[in-house]
Design a protein around this nucleic acid. Sequence first.
DNA 1: AGTGAAATTCTCCGCGA
DNA 2: TCGCGGAGAATTTCACT
Lengths: 172, 172
Amino acid sequence: MPNKAAPFDTLDRQIVAALTENGRASFAEIGAAIGLSSTAVKRRVDRLRETNVITGFSATVRPAALGWLTEAYVEVYCDSAAPPRRLAEVVRNHPEIAAAMTVTGGADALLHVRARDVEHFEEVLERIRTEPFIRKTISYMVLSHLLPDSPEAGARRPATPAAAPDSAAIQR
Amino acid sequence: MPNKAAPFDTLDRQIVAALTENGRASFAEIGAAIGLSSTAVKRRVDRLRETNVITGFSATVRPAALGWLTEAYVEVYCDSAAPPRRLAEVVRNHPEIAAAMTVTGGADALLHVRARDVEHFEEVLERIRTEPFIRKTISYMVLSHLLPDSPEAGARRPATPAAAPDSAAIQR
DNA sequence: AGTGAAATTCTCCGCGA
DNA sequence: TCGCGGAGAATTTCACT
């Protein structure tokens, strides 16, 4: 069911671009750049949020600075017909999984995993392998990023998951 | 090379967690949650930015809402010894590449590609294949995300690249 | 390091074109 | 939908502990 056709014009696009580049830019600042008043910008941003074009705001963090030094992509192979629903549950049980999706090709799913170090990664991998219908995994360790400024080089999730690297954990 | 002694305590971690969850949270709000004044929070955030723990702020956008409906991971195989430096240049030439990294395993690099649709993706793939020392590519199309709330399901970069799809309808 | 206060700027309303 | 204007918050800087 298609939602109501929301008029998504150039102005909206420019606003999204501005907030993508700087999520804390003020409405006045954005307005000055695209020729709109701050109130008009606010109204549009509110609408973009209500229609879930913009789903939130977040600080971009360099995981390495927080002690997350290891990263890998993991192909997951499941038994026979593995229901994606159950796979999703499994994925949510492991906070080190930063992203997960079903994909075409031999594997049933591809996971993006962040860990503190290689030992931690190994532990995560064993934990995942223990899950019911996981048959095998193939890991590709990330060596270096070719787009350091990309969203995925820095991440937002690592701040939250379970055990934080050094000492103190995050209380919640 | 160890960084200069950066005192990174529990308070900093809590601030990062708060800004990761809500990048537009006010300093006062964060301060109230962790027992600090807004000024103290601001100073710490400024320091976190200067030390590149926090590299920026950004709106989280749902690419599908902007008309980026197709997504894939692409393994890239290069001729003989392909210099990562040149590979990085190549990657920067294609705005549809949201992330790129060198990895262990058979492939030389793994690319995260976003395109408007399958035709567009094919066009991107052919463009990449045309590059000098790219020998072959293997693509894994993303079918569905198992962690819808993850940073990578939504993206920041798609707002900018080349031609944006015409007025996209908002749909789920 | 932290707090508090003052000046500036921004956000968030309602109202009118 | 836009812009204007005012009340209330937030940001930013400064002085002090």
